[in-house]
């Protein structure tokens, strides 16, 4: 393992994301812990998108669909559990659940299925068509959620008590942070291994030169579809955690602004950088907190910053701090 500047920076970031909430915990500042939890969860959503975007070169503007499906998986299961209304009675009686592991499983499975369908349709096209079609499918689910009155429609769905994790008290901010942080670390390890695996290398090759990948007997469509499904599943898991953080899920999670924001996390940090989403989400949360305190119109500054990064500093935050080398080869 070479100790490059980027790797040092990555370790520093992931350590900072742990130290800040621990310090806040010892100083009894639960709000800071919640901010850090939010950053970790949004970073996880970005790690998911980055597999499609950075590694696979698929510019998906519809990842809010998976984020929202994860959120609704948590909302629906928990709502049935808290109201004691069976979700279905056949083939077995199922009354919903307030157990996080089961909710995560459902979130991952359903967002992966959605990604399979959306990906299989969208990947028939490329370039600008792909962007617009993923955007359109995301909006389709958004409007569906708005008109789906059984689960709150436009008003969304509130959960009174945060769901449970065996052995932990999830209502304690630092314990819930620990869950989000561990999952984020696992996802980062998974993404790093994926990028170095034969599959990841083939996927990166398909991004760089589609014809050659086909010539050696691989199918770019299948590679991309698998990556899209993995990417959607991770973002869906982040959605379930995000909904649990807020104890609330609403169609906003599915709106295309959410897709844009997840993409912003990836870009603020640096596209194709493994830890880019961590840097980006942390920066985004800090900006939201600091600028949002100065002005209600803080998104103007976010827009200007994003514009400057896209036009003049294309490596993002990590690129600016660690030079231009890429994490994914």
């Amino acid at each position: 393992m070479m100790l490059t500047r980027e790797r040092l920076l990555n370790w520093a970031m992931i350590a900072a994301l742990l130290i800040v909430p621990l310090a806040a915990w010892s100083l009894d500042e639960p709000f800071i812990i919640t901010l850090a939890t939010k950053a970790a969860i949004l970073a996880l959503a970005g790690v998911g998108l980055n597999i499609a975007l950075g590694l696979g070169g698929m510019i998906s503007l519809g990842h809010a669909a998976f984020f929202g499906i994860g959120g609704y998986a948590m909302g629906i299961l928990a709502a049935h559990a808290q109201n004691y209304e069976p979700l279905f009675a056949w083939p077995f009686l199922f009354e919903g659940s307030n157990q996080m592991p089961l909710i995560w499983l459902v979130a991952v499975v359903f967002s992966a299925l959605a990604a399979l369908v959306i990906g299989a349709l969208s990947l028939r096209t490329s370039g600008v068509y792909f962007i617009m079609i993923t955007l359109a499918f995301g909006q389709m689910l958004y409007y569906f959620a708005i008109s789906w009155s059984a689960y709150g429609g436009e008003d969304g769905l509130s959960i009174w008590v945060r769901n449970e994790f065996p052995g932990l008290n999830t209502l304690d901010p630092i314990q819930f942070f620990a869950i989000a942080y561990v999952i984020l670390c696992l996802a980062l390890v998974f993404a790093a291994r994926l990028a170095r695996s034969p599959f990841g290398l083939a996927l990166a090759a398909a991004r760089q030169n589609e014809d050659r990948v086909e010539a050696v007997g691989l199918t770019p469509f299948t590679l991309r579809l698998i990556a899209f499904v993995i990417s959607g599943a991770i973002t869906g898991l982040a959605g379930a955690l995000f909904a649990d953080l807020n104890r609330f899920v609403s169609p906003t999670m599915l709106s295309w602004h959410t897709s844009g924001e997840i993409m912003i996390f990836v870009i603020l940090g640096g596209v194709g950088r493994l830890y880019g989403p961590v840097a980006g989400a942390a920066l985004y949360i800090m900006l939201e907190h600091l600028l949002g305190g100065i002005s209600d119109y803080w998104q103007i500054f976010l827009g200007l910053l994003l514009l400057l990064i896209v036009l003049f500093a294309r490596g993002g935050l990590i690129g600016a701090l660690a030079g231009r080398e890429k994490a994914h080869g």
Partner: peptide
């Protein structure tokens, strides 16, 4: 590439929307 276009024009939306709200 299209990614830069998507991001820059998304940034313009933020600027225009919040500017109009202001």
């Amino acid at each position: 590439d299209h990614l830069d276009q998507v991001l820059a024009t998304f940034a313009l939306i933020l600027i225009f929307s919040e500017g109009t709200r202001w």
